[in-house]
Design a binder for these strands. Structure first.
Lengths: 231, 231
DNA sequence: AACGATTTTACCAAACTGTTACATAAACGT
DNA sequence: ACGTTTATGTAACAGTTTGGTAAAATCGTT
């Protein structure tokens, strides 16, 4: 579960329910924050880094529906999993709830066991989304699973060869690869490719990278090959 | 049981034991994967989505204990239930095993009936943890229980293949799946299906989604596969 | 046999690749 | 310092590969 105890924010106006949830989540080792109104909870959300939200459907003043919509509209909070607690299991409610972006639904009456399971699951999914293989080099990032290369937070479109080329370089930053080595690693089998072709692709890769960052991270080692600048 | 047959990975170096387990689990309809060494199994775990693990205590090279520790250390695999098979029923072993995070213990000699019961139980608990009702991606919603896909509040009719395809994509938004991976996950067993067939179904899925939202959430990664756009 | 769904096929457009040719820059010898 | 030699940068082009998609073939039911 990464670091420390996950923080869970509960929106619930009925004290007995709130107490019940709070107690049980506390026992499981979660840090619980309580909000009795939508407004209160939204304020807390601005202050604290929350890991998961339990949101009662029926709230005074601002409805749970509206709260959810606001949470999901805000870039800071939109990725926090929201579990809606609803008394009525009506189709209509569910559909409207989905539209607001709730991640899960629990219909009252629910067992604590079920609730805890859903909470675990919600936390897991949001954490596992974060777990990716990423290669970094300064502000240059390559997310292998998502197949995305970015400088800062600007995405850079790369063709398959440029992508693989950059990947090889990123796997050993600073190390110099000869053109032959790059042909082996990037082109794998394709037997008859001129070594000069590497130059062309390095050039294309540079062009893409420089279109964003200006500085060129690729170093030419005259007479040997290329590497990422290990400066 | 969600989709298809649960996949069970067996770590067992003794061929006769392996055969016995494999046969009986196969009869019950599980998909069985075999590993004769810890290393082999850990590799399989990186490739395949496994639902449950049977782990022999005594393994050559890497011990079962150490394998278990590694499984539980990895975020991707830590939630897979692990059932340890141990020849000695000593309390000490149990304690050490549970300490590494094994979910259950079976002491040899055991009856097949008992083993199958534990396996069922292990699967049940992990599935109930998984049960998130709703997968969301922007305004795109998939309600697993109701088998409804909607954009905003407009329902979208999907054929079974398109539905599963979308589900696989939604379970790891942004991640790129190769056509082969999609065939494995969506088509499951059907062995000889052309990879290009995936394209056709992606096309249909896109058509349905675009009929409502205009924007196309599916990204084509030339030379690699498809993913949900991780915008 | 007829129907609906799935898979394969075939063709087109778009994207990507490898080569070449020339421009530019670095290293070298005198 | 100078011209020469050698290596690298890069634009352009033709050829190839890849993906989208409609239509035909196949499969599975009824």
């Amino acid at each position: 579960m990464i670091t420390g105890n996950p923080k869970i924010l509960i929106f619930e106006d009925e004290p007995s329910q709130l107490e019940l949830l709070s107690y049980n989540l506390g026992v499981e080792g979660y840090a619980v924050l309580k909000a009795e109104t939508g407004e209160e909870g939204l304020l807390i959300l601005q202050e604290e880094p929350i890991d998961l939200i339990l949101l009662d459907w029926m709230l005074p003043q601002i409805s749970g529906l509206e709260v959810c919509r606001q949470i999901k509209r805000n870039k800071e909070t939109k990725n926090i999993p929201v579990i809606m607690l609803t008394a009525r299991g009506e189709e209509d409610d569910k559909v409207r709830g989905l539209d607001t972006g709730a991640d899960d639904f629990i219909v009252k009456p629910y067992s604590i066991r079920e609730l805890l399971a859903r909470v675990r699951s919600g936390l897991r999914s949001s954490y596992s989304n974060k777990s990716t293989n990423v290669l970094n080099y300064g502000t240059l990032h390559m997310d292998i699973l998502r197949h995305i290369v970015s400088v800062g937070d600007v995405k850079i479109p790369l063709g398959p060869i440029e992508y693989k080329l950059l990947r090889v370089l990123l796997e050993a930053p600073g190390r110099v690869f000869s053109r032959e080595q790059l042909l082996e690693r990037v082109w794998e089998n394709s037997l008859d490719v001129e070594t000069r072709t590497v130059d062309v692709h390095i050039g294309r890769l540079r062009k893409q990278l420089k279109s964003v960052s200006k500085a060129d991270p690729i170093r030419t080692v005259r007479g040997f090959g290329y590497s990422l600048d290990s400066a």
